[in-house]
Design a protein around this nucleic acid. Structure first.
Lengths: 133, 133, 133, 133
DNA sequence: GTGGTCTAGACCACA
DNA sequence: GTGGTCTAGACCACA
């Protein structure tokens, strides 16, 4: 996958990398077992301080997105066990609230938001059926 | 409105305050013209240094969320002109992508997300009708 | 003359009033001997704290623009003696530099600035002939 | 570039620094990509609290004059897109009016002002040709 | 009484 | 090493 970094964004560079990897996994561009470039390779490619790449990989490891095997490299982890249904619902609500706050300030309607969700959802590897809880 | 601060969050205190005010405006808890507590009042209430409150208000001013009238106080601004339709669409897409990335990692389905948007939307002051562009 | 106040400008209200009076004198809208409204009258008209109007009048008095006669009112002063030729040149240069800094950041050309000066100059009561020094 | 601070001016120290940087960019003394001294360096040089320098840099960032790269430093930004032609004209007129107000009070003639503009303009990086609008 | 400015100094996130 | 955050506290401009 290709990372694209904006060094003057308010989002820290290491967080941009971790977020983009997380997005790529959600879209299926990166799949469990895929190997990420080494810290040095990616540092050279993106012309970024290796410390920053290392911080990004540390963040992804912490989030359970990747597994680093010493001497072997860094690999996308198998899908992590989702949280409890209650926790999952709490998380979803939090993220939906963030979206609706921004959409309200942009002066958008509920219908426009739902349309955007439906359109963009095609690019993501969402669960096919409802969870039974 | 009530602000609630988590001093051990990674999110800076001043940013927590600004975000909560932004959310309150989106929900209609704060409306244009409403006066925010004075810097000193809020500092006393939250047991936080007045400089930190002032930084929060400065940030909101920069974002166009409030107007500061010297010697008078800080007030919620009238709704700022939204960006161009193209920019608005770009912003919406960005926020929807963030939601879908998280929802995918939580193992949720499109229907569950749409349901959550519909339910939570009731708490927000979204535009009633579609924008004509 | 009519003052128009923007309470949310970065320019303090008292300074807006003093500046507008200064402009009116430069354009001939106000002339030496003209009486200004009383502090109370102007405070009522502009819906502004009388302390603020008093500060504006104090500022104009300090700049030699008006004379306050106790019990009589506030009047536009006769044209103040201009500074020495050297000081006058220094002042002019300072104000021209301020204009050129802004014009450069706006991406304007020398010709556009000169045109604007010629056009706008008609509204001002500039000296007719060159000073002989 | 050299900053020179007058601590007893009515203009806040942080604003003096921001203004001088803005002037230096207009004259070409500072160019896009140039790095400003670090907050600590400039604080030592000017014998001013680092927080005050940081406030100056924050203000320049807000105005789009510089870009701050976390952990790297502060750099002059590429020239910001100027406002719309109409807005540009409005701004120019405002600044020309300010100049003419002062020049009138100094008892100067139109010819003297135009001469000063022509002379001082050489020091600025004004656009070479008229804008076509 | 309101927010704005500035100092002094500790500690942290980031590259 | 770079800027960012936060506290504590003095003093000032403005309304």
């Amino acid at each position: 996958m290709r990372f694209s970094i904006n060094p003057s964004s308010v989002e820290p560079v290491y967080a941009q990398i971790a977020r983009q990897a997380r997005e790529a996994v959600a879209r299926g561009t990166l799949r469990p077992g895929d190997q990420l470039p080494t810290v040095r390779e990616l540092a050279l490619e993106l012309v970024i301080n290796p410390n920053t790449i290392a911080a990004a990989y540390r963040e992804m490891e912490r989030a359970g997105l990747v597994r680093t095997l010493r001497g072997r490299g860094t690999f996308i982890a198998v899908i992590q066990a989702p949280a409890s249904p209650a926790e999952r619902r709490r998380q979803l609500q939090k993220h939906v609230e963030a979206l609706l706050t921004e959409a309200t300030h942009l002066g958008l309607s509920e219908e426009e938001i739902l349309d955007a969700v439906r359109t963009v959802a095609r690019k993501y590897r969402l669960r096919e059926e409802k969870n039974d809880e």
